[in-house]
């Protein structure tokens, strides 16, 4: 895992849950929530969980204002780019505008090889359901940030209705994307309740996901 991981993807692709899970499992120093698009279901709502796990949460300039709906991003977001001793995960907002927030930090990048810029894909999201639309999404993110996507996350799911075959289908599509762009599938996401029952060896590391943000009754 590189020192900095930036998680992109269409909204609803699972960026925030994945960011939170990676930060906790990999004992990352900083979780930077750059999501100014979504008003609900953001990683910043997990402040207590991160505190317990010694993860420093960077969110709005006005901390704890979950209901503010203001597109503020704390200047602290730059720290992992300038301090080479800090590991970080950046959780972007969905859409073109969500990705744009990242640009303000990129002129501080010292070594591009320290950064993974990942794209999360769920083929059940209509905007990323096939190779063509995924390639379009990726090239849009690259055009906005001037940064190459370095890897893919297969997060194919229908929440509780997900089957092993669904994830394999997602992998088949992502394999083509992977081949076309010459980038690897770095993670395949499997929900913790299904982890034991899925015997298939998925490409990339198996990221066993706990849903922290979506509550039990969702």
């Amino acid at each position: 895992m590189r020192r900095i991981t930036i998680i992109s993807g269409h909204y609803g692709s699972g960026k925030s849950e994945i960011s939170a899970n990676l930060a906790i499992q990999k004992k990352i120093d900083y979780l930077v929530d750059l999501d100014i698009i979504n008003p609900y279901f953001r990683t910043r709502s997990l402040d207590k969980l991160f505190e317990k796990n010694n993860i420093h949460l960077v969110e709005s300039t006005v901390k704890g204002m979950l209901g503010s709906d203001l597109p503020y991003v704390s200047g602290e977001g730059v720290i992992p780019f300038v301090n080479p001793n800090i590991t970080a995960i950046y959780d972007l907002g969905g859409t073109e505008n969500g990705v744009r927030v990242l640009i303000q930090f990129l002129d501080r990048v010292k070594d591009i090889n320290e950064i993974d810029f990942l794209c999360t894909v769920n083929i059940f999201r209509p905007e990323t359901s096939d190779v063509k639309s995924i390639l379009q999404t990726i090239s849009m993110y690259e055009a906005v940030t001037q940064l190459k996507i370095t890897g893919l996350i297969n997060n194919t799911n229908l929440i509780k209705e997900t089957t092993e075959e669904d994830i394999i289908r997602g992998e088949e599509i992502l394999k083509e994307v992977s081949k076309k762009l010459n980038i690897p599938i770095l993670y395949t996401v499997v929900e913790e309740n299904n982890n034991q029952s899925y015997k298939y060896i998925f490409l990339g590391e198996r990221l066993v996901l706990t849903r922290y943000i979506a509550k039990r009754w969702l």
Partner: peptide
């Protein structure tokens, strides 16, 4: 309510 607007479901 806002929750139905913002949540994800198949």
């Amino acid at each position: 309510d806002g929750l139905i607007g913002q949540m994800m479901e198949p």
